[in-house]
Nucleic acid binder design. Sequence first.
DNA 1: CGGCAATTTGAACATTTTCAATACGGGTGG
DNA 2: CCACCCGTATTGAAAATGTTCAAATTGCCG
Lengths: 214, 214
Amino acid sequence: MSQHADPVESCAICPVGRAAGVRFGGRCPLVGRRHEPRATLYVEGEPVHHVWFVTRGGGLLARAGGDADSPRAVRGPGAFVGLEALVRGTYRASAHVEGRAILCGGSRDDVDAWLGAPGLPARAVLEQVLRADAADPVRGAAADGTALRRVARWLLDADALELSLSRDRVAGLLGMVPETLSRVLARLRARGAIAATRRSITIVDREALEETAR
Amino acid sequence: MSQHADPVESCAICPVGRAAGVRFGGRCPLVGRRHEPRATLYVEGEPVHHVWFVTRGGGLLARAGGDADSPRAVRGPGAFVGLEALVRGTYRASAHVEGRAILCGGSRDDVDAWLGAPGLPARAVLEQVLRADAADPVRGAAADGTALRRVARWLLDADALELSLSRDRVAGLLGMVPETLSRVLARLRARGAIAATRRSITIVDREALEETAR
DNA sequence: CGGCAATTTGAACATTTTCAATACGGGTGG
DNA sequence: CCACCCGTATTGAAAATGTTCAAATTGCCG
C-alpha cells in the first residue's frame, strides 16, 4: 500500500515533515500513499478516523454528500483534508481523490498527539478555526437544490435556530433574496413543518422537514 | 475605548485567555472592547492589521465586499474574526458587528508572536488551514450576481487557472450546472475576454474580465 | 395608540436548469 | 497515419425557479 519511494527525502521538504522534525529523527504522523483516481477517502457522516495531507499530484475534491456530486472545494498540494476529525465525531462532507495523487495520511489520534498539548495557543486557535468552519452553513447555490430544500437543510442544523438573526441576514447566509426566504418559510409553515414568528423559527415536525431536505 | 470591567476575571474563562495563561500571569494578546452595532472591523481588500475574537453578545458577520451586502457567515462567541491576517496581506471579506457585541482584538503582530514559533506543528497546520480557507472560491448563489459575473470573478482569482479541472468540476465549484458554465464561457469568449480550449482557459483581456466581474 | 421598519404577498420578468441532440477531441487499433 | 469510438463539452428550446419592483401587511416600540 505505502509506496513512498524515499520518505525521508520528501518529508524533509514537506511542511508537515519539517514541523515534525523528520530531519532530526522526528517521526511524522502521516504516511505517504498513492491513490487511485476517484478513490474515496471518506464519506459524509462517517465517524472520523484519518486526516490527510495532499503531497503531490492532482488536487482533491471534497464534495457535497448525498444528493449532488458537485465538488465544494479543491485541495491542492500542501493542504489538509479531513482535519475536521480533530473537532468533530463525523466527517462533514465526502472527499474523493481527483486524478492521480499522493496523499499522506495518519490516524486521528496520531495527528492529535502530534499537534501537542491542547492548551498551546496555536492549537487552541486551530481548534476554534476548525469549529467555525464546521459550523458554517454550506452556502448553497441554486445547483444545490431548490431554495426550499436549502432552507430545510439549514433549519435542521441545530445551531441555526439559536441565532436570532433578521430574515435579511438569514436570507443572505442562504444565498437568496429575503422575499424568497419569506415564501419558502410560508410553504414550510403551510406543511406544518415549522412555526415561525417574526424573530424566531421553531421546528414543529422534524420528519416533515427532513423529508423536504431530502 | 476599552471597557473591560474585569479583564482577569473574564479572561480566565476565555479559551484564548487560558491558552495565554492569564491566570498565571501570562499576557493575552487580545484586548476586550465593546462595539457599536454595525461597526465595521475591516473592509475587503484593506491591508491586514488586527485579529478579533468574539467574546460575548451578538454574532458577527463577514459580508461579501463590494456589491452585495449579504452576510457570508456568522461568528458567534468563541470564534475568531480576521485570522486570515496571519497568512494574507489584505482582508478577504468585510466584517461588521451584528448587534451589540464584545470582541477582543489584537494587532496582527502581537497575535503572531503569541502563537509561537512558525515551526510548531499546531501552528504549521493552522496556517495551512487558513490558507486553504482563503483559497476557497466563494461559492456563489444566484443572489451573488449572475452566473456570468461569478465566473468572471472566479477566473480573476489567479490560482483558478492553474488547476486543470474538467468543466464539470469547475461548474460544481461555482455552484452551477455545466451547461450554464459552458454558455457563460462562450459569452466571455465572444467578448474577447478569454480564450478557452477544452482543457484550459486563458485570460486574454483582463480589463474586460474585471469589467464583467464588477 | 400611532408610526416606522421589517416582513410578506403579488405579478411580471430574467435567469438558470432541464432534457435532448449534436459537435468535438483524444486515444486506440488497424 | 488515419478512421473510428467514446466520453466530454456545446448548443437549442421549453420549463421551472428565483429575482425584481411595488404594494399591503404585520409587529414592535416608544
